[in-house]
């Protein structure tokens, strides 16, 4: 049952992705990417990652859609149709995909209890959290205590990205535009 729901949602997700590749109206593209975020949030819930689902629903479906709509308002609403259709990207992508699928053949089945992922660090966190930190939500305990160095790095990346956007768009004083080529 669980697997059926997962696969169903996954098929819907892939369908949305293919639709994004085909649609030319950028407004539709942004809305479809919001749908992608919502579907992936549902998938995360089915796969027991409630914290991740929460984040994806708030960030992906909320903030990134708003930002992309803001970009569309500042730039263009339609994608230009390509002059010629090249088969090279399709060939490269198919080849890479086949290599990746060949790589998955050695992986353990979905949900296996004895896969290498489940036998080393994960159970250690599950065992030590109730003894050392006594916080029910293990994800928070790992995020803020066991791996707090990691999180410090992530916060610094968010900080730097915010700084970059402020410098690029808000600007410290207006910069003069350089001569634009004939168009």
């Amino acid at each position: 049952m669980e697997l059926t729901v997962t696969l169903l949602l996954f098929f819907a997700l892939v369908g949305t992705a293919v639709a994004i590749a085909l649609v030319r109206n950028l407004f539709a593209v942004v809305m479809l990417s919001g749908v992608t975020s919502l579907l992936s949030a549902l998938l995360f819930i089915v796969m027991d990652a409630v914290d991740v689902a929460f984040t994806e629903a708030a960030v992906g479906a909320g903030i990134s859609s708003v930002l992309m709509l803001g970009t569309i308002a500042l730039t263009a609403r339609h994608e230009k149709a390509p002059k010629r259709i090249s088969l090279v990207p399709l060939a490269v992508v198919s080849l890479t995909g086949m290599v990746l699928i060949y790589g998955t053949l050695d992986m353990p089945n979905f949900g296996a209890k004895d896969s290498p992922v489940q036998t080393h660090v994960g159970p250690d966190y599950l065992q030590r959290t109730p003894e050392e930190i006594k916080v029910p939500n293990i994800v928070t305990a790992v995020l803020a205590s066991f791996r707090s160095w990691d999180t410090l790095g992530e916060v610094t990346v968010v900080f730097t990205a915010g700084l970059g956007v402020i410098l690029l768009l808000s600007g410290l004083g207006r910069r003069r535009r350089r001569g634009r080529g004939p168009s």
Binding site: V50, D51, A53, F54, T55, A58, V59, G62, I63, V66, V135, P136, N137, V139, T140, A141, L143, A144
Partner: peptide
């Protein structure tokens, strides 16, 4: 409430910002 249920600083910051947006 991030210690006890789903949630934490990352999600809360985003939700807080959404209200202002």
């Amino acid at each position: 409430h991030g210690d006890f249920g789903p949630g934490g600083g990352f999600q809360a910051g985003v939700i807080f910002a959404v209200a202002f947006m």
